[in-house]
Design a binder for these strands. Sequence first.
DNA 1: TTGAATTCCTACCAAATAAGTAGTAAAATA
DNA 2: TATTTTACTACTTATTTGGTAGGAATTCAA
Lengths: 135, 135
Amino acid sequence: MKITTRGRYAIVIMLSLANHYTEDKFLSLKEIAESEKISLKYLEKIMMDLKKEDFFLSARGQEGGYKLAHSPSSYTIGNILKAAEKELAPVSCVTEEASCEKKGICKTYPIWKDLNEEMMKFLNSKTLADYIERK
Amino acid sequence: MKITTRGRYAIVIMLSLANHYTEDKFLSLKEIAESEKISLKYLEKIMMDLKKEDFFLSARGQEGGYKLAHSPSSYTIGNILKAAEKELAPVSCVTEEASCEKKGICKTYPIWKDLNEEMMKFLNSKTLADYIERK
DNA sequence: TTGAATTCCTACCAAATAAGTAGTAAAATA
DNA sequence: TATTTTACTACTTATTTGGTAGGAATTCAA
């Protein structure tokens, strides 16, 4: 039951941007890649998924990069992970979309439902602001 | 962040045994495989891992099978999953064993640590008895 | 105005993991 | 003693993960 590097790096990116939120300039992926020692190309790819959400403003060219569109407190950890990973639930039957035909009779379903609720309670309550660097 | 079929089927096995706990006979994997529509061979393999723990008594031959060694309330969901899956933590850096050299400086570490704590709180508190079939 | 820097986009690839099969030996009992 | 069941080892196949490669479009600084 692992969060993949996609999810983890997505949080790295978002938290880096959050840490620079008050500055009035763009932060490039190259800077993040270098400071975090992650492949730039891989970060670019992860960024493709994040960009589908209304997460940030971007600028090409020199002095270009990314900037959070909203304040750090408006991004939950769950929102970010969900954008990066395909699905967040520990077992796919607990999400509305992927309904399993055995849902009504499956004896283990209540376990996954309870676990998912606990996880979501956490992931949807914590935001980037909770994990930002305090100066 | 998915629980694999290994982990899910392990819970299926253990919950089936728990539901037959009061009966004075062994339950065979074949019966579980048929009633749950899971490959017998695959269940056997998962059983190999569970058997390393002191989970049950077994008997070969006709009328053979498995039986819980202890009462359902003494098996936590976490214990079972941990025996079936390699590791339970959502990110491996949060377990004592696999310590990451960046742990002290990693800005995302606190997120995974908090998430892991929430998950473990749930997984270690719930037992088979909580999900047993009520007659 | 041009060249470097950056985002943006598509395709491909290798390694690891997950999920399951196959076959057989050993034991127990009906 | 034939059947049933656990016990064990080896193999296989599909999917997912974690990238790489290459380049086009855009922008700005020098």
